[in-house]
Structures are given as structure tokens and as C-alpha cells.
Design a protein around this nucleic acid. Structure first.
Lengths: 322, 322
DNA sequence: ATATCCGTTGACAACGTTGTCTGCGCCGGA
DNA sequence: TCCGGCGCAGACAACGTTGTCAACGGATAT
């Protein structure tokens, strides 16, 4: 910038004015400055600008895995909203590890992001208190923050969706409906179990429930165990997209009524098509980002907790009667 | 930091030393400083640090779409390598628009990223020249930079993979093999066409080739047109994962030998399983990131152009004989 | 006793911007 | 003529760090 200024024969401040499109610069002078900028290949040093102005025009996104289709759709929506506000996105994968989540958030905060969108892996977010108090807004998505932290939270209707799936299977004559969910420590897995259980009422049988991280071998073992019961399940409800796919592999073509939580690419091309309860990951990302930018613009109203609807997409697998 | 210093009764520099774990501070003093840091909730301002030191510990990643499975796997691999070097990742989607790609790169450079990994959308990268000259290393992935720019480039063996797929179909008795590829302006689409054509030799028939952005209606129309020929195709080779899925939908169960470029989730669960030429997106991301970090560490050797192997995964659809 | 060295600490400038304030020349109105 | 105002431009400080260099007291060597 100093070089540009001396090349154009003006003061630093004038270059700054031109670069920022501020008024009060004679057009001829501005042209001279722009010419100097072009020849020198100058580009503003954003770090210095941030230091001086205090805003980074960057938001931080912590998700479970940027390569997971659900979270990457969410991330893309956040990116689009962010771009429309002229902000960049720092993103990181927590890999479902609380320590990594915390580390990412800490790093983002040290870089003074203007806001955070977090899909929490851990259950304790009191470490965020200083940042929140310092005025960095945070929005939680997919899962709520741990106790003691009051922040905007965007959730899907997990419990309602699970009940919907379960009732769908009940309506097709199934009464022995297994539930294969993720680790119950995960909020969404827990809520979905809750919805499943509520829909089943006294038909609930804990022997038909298995909750653990999706893993082909253990899912296979769980299914085998359930199928060996006196009254084996005739239908399965899977608690997330990864589990749905794992169960499909474990079944290896063996016919079984199935409804999965989460839609996935190609669910319609399988035979039979896989009936799912679809969330809207892009909608979740958009909602969270819109909320965050409202907060960043100064909205200090009470924290909001929108609940996103889910919808059942019947494709055949849930309508099987065996 | 000033507050911490006065709270601990030391000078700024001493706080800095403690924060950075520099030697030459009396343990007792360090403890006093750390106590002050805790009570005040101080965290280092990374922008100021960057300004002073000149390194941001951030790399920029420009891909086509963070929500695309291929690119998000690549992104995840880049993130992992990056994290192991203590770097954060700024990422953005170009949406296949050269202007957006350029805008993202420009913004990343203004923020003084330490390095760039780019999946180019445009064909002209001379705009990068100033940054490259200024010492910001860039690695291109999946597609090479435009002419006049010499940079490290990590590519898959597109041509070889396409030939592999085509020969696989030839080996199963097909001679009328259609190719549905993406817009020929895209490097990979072009190379794959090249491999297909080379493998076919004089059996090449341009009426069996259609290259355009994947879109269900136009793919359907292309297929219909080809199937109406005197000698219709008995097999299809699709030029990327998106096209494979689109063709599967367009075929709507109609039997057709098929090999697709790019592996995809559930390819093995479809009936018949979809034979593919698989790239290794994570390997591509890792390779590109490793190369970038070597450059960032000062390696100034001639630019490298590793070619990643692809492999054919037979699953049934390519072995159909009709 | 003097010189030297080491461990510890601090003063200061610099990184590249931008906000504030001041200065200059010119015009129009009193 | 004088003054206020306006359009344009520049000087300067500040943002929060870190690298450089100097200073201090005490111990050791000469």
C-alpha cells in the first residue's frame, strides 16, 4: 500500500479510500491509484484490516464430518448464505469427538470469527461462555448445546419423525418393529428412540432395540439376534442414513419392511425403493445461518429454537407386507 | 494482553512469552501470568499475530461443490492433512463458475492464506501469477490450470480409466458402446472421451456420444435418440458419478450394460451392482495437501504432476450380455 | 576488585490497515 | 473584503501482537 501510494504520488489514506470505494477522492486521482494498484499487483491485507476494524467477515462452522452427505449439504447451505453476506467460511470436522469440537471452536474464536455454527459432539458447552459474553453469536444445529448454555438452536423434529416412521409401519400391519439407532449419547439418536417408543406404546419391546455406532458386523449381529427371537421383527426402523445403508447391506437382499430416518441418494433406485423420513439438511443450514446473521446484525432478542418439519417419503420398503 | 500484563505485574512481552511457551521466563512469573490469563479469559488475537508474523496457518480450498460426495471426500482429506500441520481450512464452492472461482481465490489471497488447493472451474489462471510470484504456493487438483501457469497438479488417470471401462465392455462382447459425458469444456470429461475413443479405435461412432451437463431430461432424450439408431448401443459408459445416476434413472429399469466413471455409495446394492472405474478422492486430497505442505515448507523443486491410478470394480452391470 | 556471563525481564518498533482530525484551495453569499 | 462551506488530500494514532535489543542483578572467573 505504501508502494502504491508513492507510485501514485498520494498518501496512504487516499489509497485506502480508493480501495474501499470511499467518497471524497477526485476521479483522476482515483484512476491514478487504480493504475498503480494494477501494475504493482497490490491486494489489501485482510489481516491488518481485521485488526483495525475488529470484524473478520468470517464465520466458523463445526460439523461432524464435512464428507457426510447430510452435513455437507448443511455446510453448502451455510456457505451460500454466508457468501450472500460477503462472509467466508472456516469449517472443520469434529469427527464426533468433544475434544476436537472444542479445539476447533477455540481456534475459530482466536481468529475472531464473527459467528459460529456448531453441530455439537460434546455435551458441555460452558467453555463457550466467555465468547458468548464477548458478543460472538453462536447457533447450534441438529443438536442442542449442553445444559447451562442458552443459544439459538435449530433442530429437526426427530421425535415426531420417528413416530411417523413407526406409525407408518404399524399401519401396514407390523407390530414387531425393530429399531436400530446410533449411540444413545447422541441427541438425535435419543430423540428418535423416544418417538419410536411413544408410537409403539405398550407394544414396545426392548429386545428389538439396538443402539450403537453403525458398523456392519455389529448391525449384522444385532439383526441376527433379533431374528432369532420367538417373535422376530417383521420390520426395521433405522435411526439415521448411515444405519439404513448398513442394514441394507446386512440384510443382503433378505426381504424386510424398512423405514429409514434421513433421505439418501438412490433410495428411489433400490428395489424396493427405500421409504424414509426425510430431513432437510440444506434448510437446516439456511435457517441456522439466517439466524446467525440476524444475531450478527445486532438482534438481541431471546434465543430461538425453530423445529424443522420432516416428511415421510413412501417408496415401497415401508409398505412391504410379508 | 495489556490487561493480563498489568494484572500479573509484568510487561507485555512476558505475557507473549508465556502464551507462546517461549523459554526464559521464571516458572513463578509464568504461573502468575497464566493465572491472570485464566481470570481474565484472555485469548490471543490471531489477526494481530498473523499481521506481525506473516503466516496465517490457514490454507484455502476451492472446489466445485462442498456437497458433492467426490469433492467433499477430497475436502475431508485436505482438512485432515491440514489439521495435522496445525492449519485451518477456508473452503468455498465455485459452482463450476470461473468468476466465482476467481473471486474465492482473490479473497483467500487477500486473507493471506499460506497455500491454495484449487479444483479449477475456469480455463485461465494467469490471474494467479502475482500470488504465485509472491510465494503463495498453489496446487491444482482433479484438473490442471490453464495455459501459461506452471503449478503442481494432481490428476487421476482419466484417459486410462475411460479406456479401461471401454475395454471391459468390449471384452464382454459389446461393440456399440455409448458414451455420456459431461460438458466437454471440463478437462476430465474431455480426457475420458479421449480414453473411450482410443479404446474403441475404428469402432468409434460419434452418434453414440453425448456430452453435456447431467440433466435427467436431456440424458433421457440422448438415450432415446441413440436407441433409435439402426445399430443401437448395447452398453453405456458414463463419464462421471452424477451421469451414472442420471442414466440409471433415465433407464428406469430397462436392462443395459453399464460402466460408470466414479464409484458411489450403494453402487453395490443396486441390482445389478454397478460396475465402475473408481477414483480415490481422499487420496487425491491427501496427495495435493501433502504436496502443498511440502511447498509451504520451502520445497522449490520443479512442479510435480502425479497421476493417480484408478481401478475397475466389476459388480455386474458391466458384465451384462444382452 | 574487576570483568564476564547468564537468567530473567522490559522498552520499543514494526506489521498494514483505517478512523479522526486537520489543512488547503476554491466558490458563493453577506 | 471576509467568512463559511465544500471538495479533496494528508498526517497521525491506534488495533494486538512479536522480534530485537538493551538492562538488570547475581554468580563466577580472573
Amino acid at each position: 500500500m505504501k508502494d502504491v501510494a508513492s507510485a501514485a504520488g498520494v498518501a496512504l489514506k487516499t489509497v485506502s479510500r480508493v480501495v474501499n470505494g470511499e467518497p471524497g477522492v477526485h476521479p483522476a486521482t482515483a484512476d491514478r491509484v487504480r493504475a498503480a494498484i494494477d501494475t504493482l499487483g497490490y491486494s489489501r491485507n485482510e489481516s491488518a484490516r481485521v485488526l483495525r476494524r475488529g470484524r473478520t467477515a468470517t464465520i466458523g462452522l463445526v460439523i461432524e464430518d464435512v464428507a457426510d452427505p447430510f452435513y455437507s449439504s448443511l455446510g453448502r447451505a451455510v456457505e451460500d448464505v454466508s457468501a450472500s453476506h460477503g462472509c467466508l467460511l472456516l469449517s472443520g470436522s469434529s469427527s464426533e469427538e468433544p475434544a476436537r469440537e472444542r479445539e476447533l471452536v477455540r481456534t475459530f474464536c482466536a481468529r475472531r470469527v464473527d459467528g459460529l455454527i456448531i453441530v455439537p459432539a460434546g455435551a458441555d458447552h460452558t467453555y463457550l461462555r466467555p465468547e458468548l459474553d464477548a458478543g460472538t453469536p453462536a447457533v447450534f444445529a441438529d443438536r442442542p448445546p449442553g445444559p447451562g448454555v442458552d443459544a439459538d438452536t435449530v433442530l429437526s423434529d426427530n421425535s415426531g419423525g420417528a413416530a411417523l416412521a413407526t406409525r407408518h409401519l404399524l399401519a401396514h400391519g407390523h407390530t414387531r418393529i425393530a429399531f436400530l439407532g446410533d449411540d444413545p449419547a447422541i441427541f438425535t439418536a435419543n430423540r428418535r428412540l423416544h418417538g419410536y417408543r411413544a408410537a409403539l406404546g405398550d407394544r414396545y419391546d426392548e429386545r428389538l432395540v439396538a443402539m450403537r455406532a453403525p458398523d456392519l458386523d455389529s448391525v449384522r449381529a444385532d439383526l441376527r439376534r433379533m431374528l432369532a427371537l420367538d417373535q422376530p421383527p417383521t420390520a426395521v426402523f433405522t435411526g439415521n442414513g448411515r444405519l439404513t445403508v448398513t442394514v441394507l447391506r446386512a440384510l443382503a437382499g433378505q426381504p424386510m419392511a424398512l423405514v429409514g430416518f434421513d433421505d439418501f441418494e438412490l433410495a428411489d433406485l433400490l428395489v424396493p425403493g427405500v421409504t424414509v423420513v426425510a430431513q432437510d439438511p440444506a434448510g437446516m443450514g439456511r435457517t441456522a445461518a439466517d439466524l446467525l446473521f440476524r444475531r450478527m446484525a445486532g438482534d438481541t432478542g431471546p434465543s430461538e429454537h425453530p423445529l424443522l418439519p420432516v416428511r415421510l417419503i413412501p417408496r415401497g420398503s415401508g409398505e412391504l407386507v410379508l
